[in-house]
Design a protein around this nucleic acid. Structure first.
Lengths: 349, 349
DNA sequence: TTGATTTGCGCAATCGTTTGCGTATAGTTT
DNA sequence: AAACTATACGCAAACGATTGCGCAAATCAA
């Protein structure tokens, strides 16, 4: 008899009250003019019957789902679980549930997934996918769906966002290398259809310029994805094209680790031969060999901030659209060292 | 005018047909006796109006949500995102969405989260939390909710599960160490309220026995969580209590990495002084120093298999309850080496 | 006791879809 | 041309919860 779930009507009948009374008795705060006596009785009966509101019926009526959707490119990249955790931390306290979907940076699927979430009437959306020029945003704002972006800013200011100051972050890395005496620094850029890919590349160029380093075309290679593989391929290309390079700024930790792979394969020593910096400070990069010098961004905090922004917008659809930018910090470890001693040119080709 | 979303009624009116006709025209497969003409017309109008089914209304009527819930202890541990990805891979092809919640191994929250998911009418549940003696399972099966467990078997055979053969996995590690000449091997066990904690510990004891190694009380210390911190603490204890230890098998990679931390702090060299094995082969452990010898389990596959099992049960509520056990494999890297040369006893205390 | 005021609870409409059933029209057969 | 069978579509009743409204009972003042 547990099999067929109890409905509000059942509870009401069993408690000998009207269904509407039961409804009111069961809701949390405002005992909307009901005797404590009745409340108690209904609650007991509900418990006994194993009653549980049907979220659909409820949401259908109230038009609120108490669920928010999170869109991520892929869960593999360790930053994203961190973001999700941050979001969860704050929204779960407010009684929200989260629905996650990943779209693998596939624009096609991206739109479909968003539609799906909207059909599920999520109260709001957190977009952690960094696709540039996302047409979905326009449709979201036009339909008045609260949404906030993480890791990417809407250049038209339609949706609030939480980002880190990528230009600044990369500048930290470049300055650090320059202060170690490096003059010939290369950049392994992220995919240029992702916002982080372009902002970090821009940051690299700017930082180099203000430091008076000149960088040529061949000193920048863009990886086709944020992955170790892509990083390794990019590193190989850089090395063969720039024999004088003494330092590498990677657009992300995974790319940097890919460089490790490539270097190991070709006998290049890090940091003795070339220094490397990463970006993100993901878990475990302090344990790799050599421990990676990188730019730390607090993803969990990003998630938490995004959640706050979203909740505020859900509460008030025209809360101000703000861009929250977090300060990255440099974490110096052992993958970078002084360039004073140029590496011997007799390094294996 | 996009603001207020179009309902089926609107579409019907605009297309000049009855609402029920519109409904039929919009659904995918069985053009339930509708002229292609009408279908076309309705579809166009729907598109123009930006119509989108209200999943709530639909699910309320059909009692299906096309959503499945996944419960995870925490997203930090890299195995879980992998599982989720595996699940997503298969269910998204079938048009399901996934709702994720993590309960942080908190029994309290655990139950609440499950209730919440049920209120949302998920069609099925994947439980990746490894809490032992979970009362929730009973309530799930009694309510006939399709559920499958990952990483943990229901000893009463009520719900299907996907697990790896932990006893075998640990045995692989122990045999490996024994074959390298290690005789005094210690185990850093996982929390004993988690199933993996107990099965791996049992595996360790059994393997030691069949290899004729005797292990004493003090050779096993159980960590209070699967984390680097806990691993470091456990390692320190082990070292001070067992001065003759030459090898450590950790119940999980994070614990093993925690050992690294502890060893580094106390000047113990790995593997020269003591060998270590981990469990899981999570990303990047091939890059740490020294690269970690560990037991590989394919979490993504686990997720995928679990999803298949779940879909089958959703399709047919009394599909057979099976336990799928995956074979772990040993990945030998550099954190283990021959015990021939015992470490000197003048190691710093 | 009467009238005014508060309070507890029932009534019924509503949210947007889905679907079994019934009917009208078109199409086929004799 | 009549009688029949298909076929396309409309009707209306669900699904389960929420909530404005209103009625009756209870409370109070005079």
């Amino acid at each position: 008899m547990e099999k067929t779930k109890a409905t509000l009507k059942d509870v009401a009948k069993a408690a000998g009250v009207h269904i509407s009374t039961a409804s009111r008795a069961l809701k949390a705060e405002p005992q909307h003019r009901i005797t404590p006596d009745v409340v108690e009785r209904v609650r007991i009966v509900a418990g006994k019957l194993g009653y549980r509101v049907n979220a659909f019926a409820s949401s259908l009526r109230t038009k609120r789902s108490n669920a928010i959707g999170i869109l991520i490119p892929d869960l593999w990249n360790p930053g994203f679980p961190a973001i999700v955790t941050g979001v969860q931390d704050v929204v779960s306290r407010e009684g929200y549930e989260i629905t996650i979907a990943s779209d693998g940076n596939d624009l096609e699927r991206h739109a479909a997934v968003i539609e799906n979430m909207l059909a599920r009437q999520v109260d709001g959306l957190i977009l952690a996918t960094a696709i540039l020029k996302d047409p979905a945003i326009a449709s979201l704002v036009s339909r008045n769906v609260p949404a906030v972006m993480v890791n990417r800013r809407d250049d038209q200011g339609r949706a609030p966002s939480v980002i880190t100051d990528d230009e600044r972050g990369i500048a930290l890395a470049v300055e650090h290398l320059a202060s170690l005496g490096h003059r010939h620094i290369c950049h392994i850029a992220g995919p240029q259809n992702l916002s982080t890919g372009v902002t970090r590349k821009r940051g690299f160029l700017e930082a180099a310029k203000t430091l008076g380093l000149k960088v040529q075309e061949s000193q920048i290679v863009v990886a086709d994805s944020y992955s170790r593989d892509a990083g390794a391929r990019a590193a190989s290309r850089i090395i063969t094209q720039n024999r004088q390079v003494t330092a590498l700024v990677a657009a992300n930790d995974l790319l940097a680790l890919g460089c490790y792979d490539s270097f190991r394969a070709s006998g290049i020593r890090c940091p003795a031969d070339v220094s490397i910096t990463g970006y993100n400070d993901m878990p475990l990069v302090d344990l790799v060999s050599p421990p990676l010098t990188t730019v730390r961004v607090d993803h969990r905090q990003m998630g938490a901030e995004a959640a706050h922004l979203l909740l505020r917008r859900i509460g008030n659809t025209n809360a101000p659209v703000v861009d929250l930018v977090l300060r990255p910090t440099l974490v110096v470890r052992a993958s970078t060292s002084s360039a004073a001693v140029r590496r011997s040119s007799k390094r294996p080709s």
